[in-house]
Design a protein around this nucleic acid. Structure first.
Lengths: 231, 231
DNA sequence: CGGCAAGTTTGCGCCACGACAAGGACGCCG
DNA sequence: CGGCGTCCTTGTCGTGGCGCAAACTTGCCG
């Protein structure tokens, strides 16, 4: 397998306090995989044999219900670990990560996880924190879905995307990957129709500007107000 | 602080492969607390200084929204660890665990967590798995809330309670702690009115039998069918 | 034993959203 | 440049379940 340059990961907080030698040792065990839009890193229910780190691009993690209904569980951003089912004592993957944009992924076999953690105890802690945050986010989402109306939920979702995948532009902040109305609907538990209507209304008020698979937030304050129910 | 007898915890899987001496050492650092119905172990947002193990009784973990809306995030059963925010690198508690029945709780100061884990590496793994499961459950709930109608969600919730807190009786399986319609509503993101109506309908079909803070499941199969959407 | 509080049931009206349906716009590819 | 697929918009209609309101039941406590 071709060598992977450590400059790829050097800047990630996850590797912040590792020596070059340690990083090289880890990268020696890794393989690199490039994904085109729409490709899956692995499939829900598949046996978990590897864990992953997203270097570049964007993944949406899907789950399907027995009836074929789809939802987006979360979005994976560059620098995020994902698919470490093994660490959670699962033997299959609970969801399917699809590339929403062309993406670059590091893959390690499960056995490496042990070394991974020994090599850098800081990392075990880091993984724990990551999971903790993820749990926290999940609970927040549950609370939103239980208590808030659709417009507020969508506002929250957009704010989150903005913070995690926002890119400053002259006229506002752009969500930095292709995002369909359908995607937003699947993140908030509604339909693309309703999302479309909401975006249209917001556009009329100058809060956002939409486009095919595009979204630009022009007035964060107004959006935050909507999210807090002061619509 | 009075000594705590190890017979209290000996039977828990969490301590399965620890020596008596190790257990005693851990218990020496613990304190025991009894909670009456309605009492809180700690409050949401409070600084996290301890972690806990439920020995007996039942806790419902509440979160309140900024508007005062309440939801039940999860139910803590005997043998469950809870409130280990520290392990997740949080410094405050994300929710409030209220005693749904009279309960008995073991409390350790945060500093012990390290020893706890060293003493029994199995335990770190166990904690990880616990969190993993919890995350998994959270995602399941999100998916349900996003895609299922109220009756199915309630059916799922009741099935879960049955499995985790069911007690065989002559006429079916009883949920083994006081559970109001309001509680079920807060677990499923609906109102007590709707839950009441649903229970009434089910009772008419002989699926359950209700009562003040009581619920008895008489026909698990029918309930499971409803949960799968074959109503 | 009688009264009170907490929990439950049920009816009614309304409305936010989902289902359905049709048409329009963007962008890719040959 | 023209055609097609994908994504988006907008209308109409129907309804699940929430809000509100009122009465009933159950268990507790004095």
């Amino acid at each position: 397998m071709a060598d992977i340059d450590r400059s790829l990961v050097r800047s990630l907080p996850l590797f912040a306090n590792m020596s070059d030698a340690d990083i090289d040792r880890l990268l020696a065990r890794a393989s690199l995989r490039r994904l085109l839009i729409g490709e899956a890193v692995f499939e829900q229910g598949q046996k978990a044999t590897q864990f992953f780190l997203l270097l570049h691009g964007r993944l949406k993690v899907m789950q399907v219900t027995s009836e074929g209904q789809q939802i987006i569980v979360r979005v994976v951003h560059p620098g995020d670990l994902f698919g470490f089912a093994q660490a959670l004592q699962r033997d299959d993957y609970p969801g399917t990560p699809l590339a929403a944009a062309e993406s670059l992924v590091l893959c390690w076999p499960n056995e490496v996880w042990g070394h991974f953690v020994e090599q850098n105890p800081h990392m075990a802690v880091n993984a724990m924190r990551t999971i903790g945050q993820r749990l926290q986010e999940a609970h927040t989402r549950i609370r939103e879905m239980a208590t808030e109306e659709v417009e507020r939920r969508v506002a929250h979702a957009v704010l989150r995307l903005m913070d995690q995948a926002g890119k400053r532009e002259e006229d506002g902040v752009r969500i930095d990957f292709p995002l369909t109305r359908q995607d937003v609907a699947e993140m908030t538990g509604t339909t693309l129709h309703t999302v479309s209507r909401i975006f249209s209304a917001w556009e009329g008020q100058g809060i956002v500007r939409g486009g095919r698979q595009k979204l630009l937030v022009r007035d964060r304050a107004r959006l935050a107000a909507l999210a807090e129910g002061e619509g």
